[in-house]
């Protein structure tokens, strides 16, 4: 008997910090030097195996980074179970932007949302502007998970998603926040994905 849990994950952060590249590395283990900018958002899925008994499937919403697209962001982080807020370790301004995303999530997203702060581009360590100490300190203050990654080399990428999977409440009953699929009312349609995280229990692992 194995259990598969499903969670909605959103990626947020300034433009060109590597959100799509992180997802591409995580989902397909690939890297493009020049990945087209994301328009609106992109939807992908990936499953993490925690142990023989447990897998976690992420429904990933990779969002556009430009400020203009911020107005669309609520529909992606609404009902999200977890968020990866990405900054670029070579651009200190991107950490500021990450802080503002964290504040917005703390105000607007589901209170139980698990937030991971992710410093990307460790392959460019020579040009580092954001120290590990500074980021870690901020993450600790806000109670965020924190990690550094390089989507280019793959370093740290699966670690951060696995860590999130472990942190999610896998023992929670199916009625997680927003898990009631019929509750479309009361939300703003049109800018509402209103997708519910579903914790499904499957009998046995073969779902092919």
């Amino acid at each position: 008997m194995s259990k598969q849990f499903q969670f909605k994950l959103v990626l947020l952060g300034e433009s060109a910090v590597g959100k799509s590249s992180l997802v591409l590395r995580f989902v397909k283990d690939q890297f493009d030097d020049y990945r087209e900018s994301t328009i609106g958002a992109a939807f992908l899925t990936q499953t993490v195996t925690l142990d023989d008994q447990t897998t976690v499937k992420f429904e990933i919403w990779d969002t556009a980074g430009q400020e203009r697209y911020k107005s669309l962001a609520p529909m992606y982080y609404r009902n999200a179970n977890c968020a990866v807020v990405v900054y670029d370790i070579t651009q200190s301004a991107s950490l500021e932007k990450a802080r503002s995303w964290v504040r917005e999530l703390q105000r607007q997203a589901d209170p139980s949302i698990v937030i991971a702060l992710c410093g990307n581009k460790t392959d460019l360590n020579a040009r580092r502007q954001v120290s590990q100490e500074e980021a870690k300190k901020y993450a600790d203050e806000e109670g965020l998970m924190w990690g550094e990654t390089s989507a280019k080399t793959g370093e740290g990428v699966s670690d951060i998603f696995t860590a999130i999977a472990k942190k999610l409440p896998l023992t929670a009953p199916p009625s997680r926040p927003g898990a009631n699929r019929a509750s479309a009312s009361g939300t703003q349609a049109g800018v509402d994905l209103n997708r519910n995280p579903v914790s499904t229990e499957q009998t046995d692992g073969c779902n092919c």
């Binding site: 939807f43 529909m75 209103n194």
Partner: peptide
């Protein structure tokens, strides 16, 4: 299924189907 049109069609209209 609660599939909002914005979630897949946004880039179609903003980039005029480029990519």
């Amino acid at each position: 299924q609660m599939i909002s049109t914005t979630s897949y069609a946004t880039k179609w209209y903003i980039t005029l189907f480029a990519n």
